[in-house]
Design a protein around this nucleic acid. Structure first.
Lengths: 160, 160
DNA sequence: TACATTTACGTAACTGGTTACACAAAAACA
DNA sequence: TGTTTTTGTGTAACCAGTTACGTAAATGTA
């Protein structure tokens, strides 16, 4: 695999990460399509969260998954349209929309879980001979949490 | 940093990669905006390719960057609109559009390069205490090139 | 209690990628 | 040479996320 992005190492790193995550996204969607599961790749984690905690608001979910709330609104609307989510407004705070799994979702969860487990196996196989990958990915996340690309690069520019 | 995605390890890996690459994308855009550079994050690599090789077609660029050609059409149109790219049709093959850097692009390249260099420094700093990251990222790419998520997961499902 | 601030959510407009389809030009081939 | 296949590009429709803005409810405060 000749690869311009790999050849230019640090310059291509952002693009490679994007490529990899896009590939995962599209391949996961193709997998769901081929197996007839009527879900989108990004719904998975919402199912998991609502299984762990029965009722959550959009804001809570988006914070937990570190995603913007408008992004989460779209996901939730999609899941509602398919009948996987119920919403009810909070008695004490009418702004809040309490989301929970529908009966349909609960019934289908065991089937979903089989496929998710197969996916977990795939990810395990993928990193099994890259023993530092997860730890070092964590390092990167922590570094960016400290100071992001923009801040770091602005600083670096001054030193050039 | 408590993190649901990190806690569930393999199950959250795809999401973490997406988060990281999105963060890089948006932070890079913010950087360009703050410094007044009139370019988009993904144009960088097209500039580099056309600096290395004076004329390239859309298909060649999209293959080099492993991106779909419609995606590249959009990028190229954006760069043309800003006057960074010239196109001329191939004498021998009228379907082909030969792309090259405009004078404006060539004149601005030294300035762009300063900022890209600062960005390279950022990426170096980011991985400097994660000495296996690049190699192991390469591992992952190679594994996916062999067999992608969909194929692997379909296989894994049979073993469950 | 009145007013200012924060919070929760929604919508609009945008970027960035994909697949699916169309079509003409070039190449392969019978 | 005529026909089929491949290639290069373009367009449409879609999904996934963002920022920016608006609004109403809740909260804090003078």
């Amino acid at each position: 695999m000749e690869d311009f992005l790999s050849a230019i190492t640090h310059e291509g790193l952002a693009g490679r990460l994007k490529r990899l995550s896009d590939e995962l996204l599209y391949s996961t969607r193709a997998y769901y399509k081929s197996t007839g599961l009527d879900i989108e790749p990004n719904w998975h984690l919402v199912f998991l969260l609502l299984e762990r905690q029965e009722q959550m608001t959009i804001t809570e979910i988006s914070q937990e998954l570190k995603m913007s709330h408008p992004g989460m609104v779209k996901i939730v609307n999609g899941m509602k349209k398919k009948g996987y989510l119920l919403s009810q407004s909070d008695e004490n705070d009418s702004r809040k929309q309490l989301l929970s799994l529908s009966e349909k979702a609960k019934n289908l969860l065991p089937e979903f879980r089989r496929h998710w487990d197969a996916g977990i196996m795939t990810m395990q196989q993928l990193v099994e001979d890259s023993p530092h990958f997860l730890d070092e990915l964590r390092n990167l996340e922590l570094k960016f949490a400290e100071s992001n690309y923009q801040q770091r690069t602005s600083e670096n520019l001054k030193t050039l």
